[in-house]
């Protein structure tokens, strides 16, 4: 590999790392399409993407753990529900493939879901104004204000079907509700063939009522397991290329450290707006690529990649800008633990 390619992979890694550390998502969503457009076979693009996601999630989870933002009880419950959901999702895909409908249905669902969540998150964040966010200083088991819990999450928390478990932030919820939400998100990610961070992170916040920083940390904890298992399965058939994964990881380790630290500094509503915008642009990128496939226009693949990379660059720059702005503010409230 040339020095130029090596530098490109490291720089790309830094960019992805910031987003991954900040949002708990964005790995395979960004790496796999980029590798495909660069001409790598799909097996290598997906396998190396998963191995990269695994490595990055290990680093980001360790960082979030240091900030007290990983709920292991919730994470393990989610892994169980998600695994069952993934299997059911995969079976639905196989059934649709037999009918010859899988490609189109999956693409349309992907665009609608990504765009729908993006619109919802952006709308909620804009509606919330300055006073609606959950505090970033969610350390240990400090209780959160009831006003900060979304209405839907309050409804789900009200079902007291035993066993009830208490999560970080003082959230008390039925284990069955967690398993149900995990199953639904697993089903969607198995159906769409994606890691599912963009589905799980909002689900943890809007459906279970987990504060955003803990939702991000716990989501990363779960991605660590799914990424590890996924990369092992692809590595069995030679799908993991270390010459791609190693430089990407070296860059993303630095970026993830910055991104994770920024979650403790940047305003909660700003996090949600960035997250929503990124999903909306991601939906547009997938729609453009799908249109390219349908029309047989290869150039739209590059437009799609430019949209993905452009939005990633824009959003990670915005995250860094907000973090720096918060640190320079006269009365900084949340930056003491960040590095």
């Amino acid at each position: 590999m040339s020095a130029g390619m090596l530098a490109l992979f490291v720089a790309f890694g830094v960019l992805i790392g910031v987003l991954f550390g900040f949002f708990g998502m964005g790995g395979s969503f960004l790496v796999t399409p980029a590798l495909l457009v660069m001409g790598y076979p799909s097996r290598v693009a997906v396998g190396s993407g998963l191995a990269f996601v695994f490595g990055t999630s290990v680093i980001a989870t360790l960082k979030h753990r240091d900030l007290g933002q990983v709920d292991y009880k919730l994470g393990i419950s989610m892994i169980i529900g998600t695994t069952v959901g993934l299997e059911v999702g995969k079976e639905i895909v196989l059934y649709l493939e037999e009918l010859g409908l899988a490609g189109n249905i999956i693409s349309v669902t992907y665009v609608l879901l990504l765009g729908g969540i993006g619109l919802f998150v952006t709308y909620e964040a804009l509606k919330g104004g300055d006073g609606g966010g959950v505090s970033h200083d969610v350390d240990g088991d400090a209780d959160i204000d009831a006003d900060d819990i979304p209405e839907l999450a309050k409804k789900i928390q009200s079902y007291s079907l035993p066993p009830m478990i208490t999560l970080r932030g003082g959230v008390k919820v039925s284990l069955w509700m967690i398993l149900l939400v995990a199953f639904a998100t697993g089903l969607l990610s198995g159906f769409l063939g994606v890691g599912g961070g963009f589905i799980r992170m909002p689900a943890l916040f809007y459906l279970i009522g987990v504060p955003v920083p803990i939702a991000v940390g716990t989501d990363l904890f779960e991605i660590m397991f799914s990424g590890g298992i996924g990369s092992f399965l692809y590595a069995q058939s030679g799908g993991v290329d270390l010459s791609i994964v190693a430089p990407l990881l070296a860059g993303s380790a630095l970026g993830a450290r910055v991104g994770s630290a920024a979650t403790s500094i940047v305003n909660e509503d700003e996090i949600k707006i960035y997250f929503g915008l990124m999903l909306l642009l991601g939906a547009l990128a997938v729609a453009v690529r799908q249109a390219g496939n349908y029309l047989g226009m290869g150039v739209l693949d590059y437009v799609s990649l430019a949209l993905i990379l452009g939005s990633a660059l824009m959003v990670s720059s915005a995250v860094l800008y907000s973090a720096v702005k918060s640190m320079r503010a006269p009365s900084t409230t949340g930056g003491s633990t960040a590095d």
Binding site: A51, G55, T56, G228, V240
Partner: peptide, 14 residues
């Protein structure tokens, strides 16, 4: 080989 590859990624991450 697959386990070793995943192990290398894990060690690099740590």
């Amino acid at each position: 080989q697959a386990a070793a590859l995943v192990g290398v990624v894990l060690v690099e991450a740590m």
